[in-house]
Design a protein around this nucleic acid. Structure first.
Length: 392
RNA sequence: GUGGCCUUAGUGUAGUGGUAACACAACAGUUUGUGGCACUGUUAUCACGGGUUCAAAUCCCGUAGGCCACC
């Protein structure tokens, strides 16, 4: 059960300011949701994470089903107690793993765009995936998906009903419908057929849910306008508590904005919208202007573990990405970001962080994770203020 | 003093006649509903000087430096 209140609508864009009330606290929107796939923000514990300004987390059904299993989580008193996070919590349905462990892995592609090297590798592969194709390691049927466990190789089936049952045992405040996330390499026909699975699955998810958890439906349709609109109309007409927007967006930022503009117009105004798995810093103002209320993204935490820090820039460019592995930081006595109020920036020099990274100390990953999350949350907080002050 | 062995990218090594390989480092890039340090590139006239050969890191001679054994 959640309650979404819109406090203010921008008159310059579709952006809006709001509050999502959950049984475990509130989320001020627009909000960045931290990715805690395995029931933790990697390197941080549940006492540290709130200090980054992170309001809510999203865990993953597929991963937690495999390890430790929803029964274990349930015996621990549910996800909130298990991970000591008495704040808003979401679980992703496992639908993304249909892509990431399937065609995503087969072709080495991300979901947003095919990277430069992959563009060359797959120059002739656009629309390569068409109706009838199956990924190597998983099998997608009308009823659900047969996965092979990355842990011990055993086969396991997850369909809409299974996903909901698992998510009920996990016990997050907001759960997601099971969907098929398609690849950027999939053609129109494939995406059309995928909707013929995702849409019935959405209804099954609604019927299967017995708990009072909030359930979000997920809009798919790839980069194709009529499919996106069809999906948004269908999913938007069902009695979900909110809506996720998933899948791939045609490879460029401009197309992502366009896709959002098609979809969001079709969704009920009064319900929250969550954009799944986006965004980089430059994406965030754009998606908020399109009317996105919450979004999750691995960028701040994932990059931190590769040694990158996001910092503010003096010039008018929004931000800068520092690779703290570079030798040039070995004697740099300045903080990561002198405009940042997080304790990492108040305490340590770049020189120290560089040293920790080169020494392969896990503290390096922790400090960078903390700073990056803090930076992202501050970034979004500023945008909330801009909406409040009629600037966007 | 005599005999033997060694010298290949910043570092450590592979390569015993056909136009230099690997690891780490360095440098440049990638990462969007998370494989916890990944991926993709770039970087050497093979100690120096001669010689043999169509062809030399590779064979021969000399020089320099290093290691070992013996007197």
């Amino acid at each position: 059960m959640i309650n979404f209140k819109i406090l203010k609508k921008s008159n310059k864009s579709r952006a809006r300011l709001g509050v999502i009330k959950t049984p475990n606290g509130t989320i001020e929107t627009p909000a960045f949701i931290g990715v805690a796939t395995q029931a933790t923000i990697k390197t941080l514990d549940s006492k540290e994470t709130p200090k980054t300004g992170t309001q809510a987390l999203i865990c993953n059904t597929f991963h937690l089903h495999l390890k430790p299993g929803e029964e274990v989580v349930s015996k621990n008193g549910g996800l909130h107690k298990f991970m000591d996070w008495q704040r808003p919590l979401m679980t992703d349905s496992g639908g993304y793993q249909v892509f990431s462990l399937g065609f995503g892995r087969d072709y080495g592609t991300g979901k947003v765009s095919v990277s430069d090297t992959n563009i060359q590798m797959h120059a002739n592969d656009t629309n390569k995936i068409t109706v009838g194709h199956q990924p190597k390691d998983i099998r997608i049927t009308n009823e659900g998906v047969w996965f092979r466990s990355p842990i011990d190789g055993r086969k396991l089936f997850i369909g809409p009903e299974e996903s909901i049952k698992i998510q009920e045992k996990l016990g997050a405040d907001i759960i997601f419908a099971f969907d098929e996330c398609t690849s950027p390499l999939a053609d129109y026909e494939y995406n059309k057929k995928a909707l013929q699975k995702t849409h019935p699955w959405a209804k099954i998810c609604l019927r299967a849910k017995k708990s009072k958890q909030a359930l979000y439906g997920i809009v798919q349709g790839g980069k194709f306008k009529d499919l996106r609109i069809e999906s948004a109309r269908f999913i938007g007409s069902l009695p979900f508590d909110g809506f996720g927007i998933g899948g791939e967006f045609g490879g460029s930022k401009a197309k992502m904005e366009k896709m959002l503009s098609w979809v969001i117009k079709e969704l009920p105004e009064e319900k929250p919208r969550h954009l799944l798995g986006i965004g980089q810093l430059e994406d965030i103002p754009k998606i908020i202007k399109q009317g996105v209320d919450t979004f999750d993204c691995t960028i701040p935490t994932h990059y931190a573990r590769h040694g990158y820090a996001f910092i503010s820039k003096k010039s008018n460019v929004a931000y800068e990405k520092l690779d703290m592995n570079k030798t040039k930081y070995s004697k740099d006595l300045s903080p990561l970001d002198k405009n940042c109020d997080c304790y990492v920036c108040k305490t340590y020099t770049r020189s120290y962080l560089h040293h920790l990274l080169k020494s392969k100390e896990i503290t390096a990953l922790k400090l960078l994770t903390f700073h990056n999350l803090f930076y992202f949350n501050e970034f979004v907080k500023k945008i909330r203020n801009e909406i409040k002050n009629n600037k966007i």
